[in-house]
């Protein structure tokens, strides 16, 4: 009966041993569609935040003057520059310089981790909590949900870094690296919008 199995090589352009589920180009298409879809959650949160803020009688809870913006600005600069370093890492990859890739990649991870740490420091110094009206609710919802994405990005980068040590793994470039990089730029753009909405737009 085994002889009636379909022929071994299916010619789907898949990597040897990749089997049926590996359609190289589809992964990136699928990932881009996923990111577009994911951005709608943020859009929903942003528009919800704007509607609540515009409709509020007293936006700031009692005892809260506003948000301190200097430290988050440093955080922003760190995150934006990490978009540059991940680009450099990808360029090294394209030049087949695997150690150059690893160095820039690791630096990007460090910048991402610094951002998370800065976020944690900011959270711990705040005088309001998640349940402090819609001001506290939207603040923690937006920064928390974005922070989860940053964390996911750093973990994905760690995974890709680990995979770079498998011999010859990244010879022809790597889908996962491209996807992670796209994800990282996405997280970055979301943060810029978030920074404008939360820290720049303080007057209600």
């Amino acid at each position: 009966m085994t002889s009636s199995l379909p022929s071994q090589d299916h010619g789907h352009g898949s990597a040897p041993g990749g089997g049926h589920g590996m359609h190289a180009k589809h992964n990136l298409t699928g990932f881009i569609i996923f990111l577009l879809s994911e951005s709608v959650i943020f859009l929903a949160f942003f528009s919800g935040y704007a509607m609540l803020k515009l409709g509020a009688l007293d936006w700031l809870p009692p005892g809260v003057e506003g948000l301190e913006w200097q430290t988050p600005l440093i955080n922003t600069i760190v995150l934006v520059s990490s978009s540059g370093t991940i680009y450099l890492a990808e360029r090294e990859m394209a030049r087949h310089n695997i150690w150059g890739f690893r160095a820039w990649w690791l630096l990007t991870m460090a910048l991402g981790a610094y951002f998370l740490w800065g976020q944690a420091v900011e959270w711990s110094g705040l005088k309001f909590g998640f349940t402090t009206g819609t001001f506290g609710g939207t603040f923690y919802l937006l920064t928390g949900f974005h922070g989860l994405h940053v964390l996911t990005g750093v973990l994905l980068m760690a995974l890709m870094l680990g995979k770079s040590f498998i011999p010859n793994n990244y010879k022809g470039g790597e889908q996962g690296v491209q996807a992670t990089s796209l994800f990282w730029h996405f997280v970055d753009v979301i943060w810029i919008i978030l920074f404008v909405l939360l820290y720049v737009w303080q007057r209600s």
Binding site: V40, G48, L52, A56, F130, T131
Partner: peptide, 29 residues
């Protein structure tokens, strides 16, 4: 669907954690 998911997350927080995204008494809508 992501928009509904966003709303459902906020509703879940209102229900379980006690936020007030949709609760008028806490400034929600």
């Amino acid at each position: 669907l992501p928009a509904l998911t966003g709303g459902a997350i906020m509703l879940l927080f209102d229900l379980v954690v006690g936020t007030s995204f949709f609760q008028p008494e806490g400034g929600g809508d």
